[in-house]
Amino acid sequence: MSGITREQVAHLASLARIELTDAELTDFAGQLEGILSAVASVSEVAADDTPPTTHAVPSVNVFRADEVRPSLDREALTDSAPAAEDGRFRVPRILDEE
């Protein structure tokens, strides 16, 4: 449980698809180190034999009936998109080659 470096923050930001400025990298590295030392106490707890809790209240998978029913209006969805064309979402270039 050590600190977190500026380089690590840059790597994590790249995984999370967030462009950070130099100032943000420096600020976050310091702040995340502080947060990690505040939360690191969980590692002191002896819990090897304790099962993890993923949900507050135990739940089982739920299936709905396999019936055709109306879905959201397609036009309403594309209307709220940043860019749409021919009833579809228009997205930026996704391949390296033109």
Binding site: M1, V39, V42, T50, T53
Partner: peptide
């Protein structure tokens, strides 16, 4: 394991 996994176990202990 050290962070998220451990936090979920602590969640069990709190419960």
């Amino acid at each position: 394991d050290a962070y998220y996994g451990q936090a979920q176990k602590v969640r069990t202990l709190i419960t």
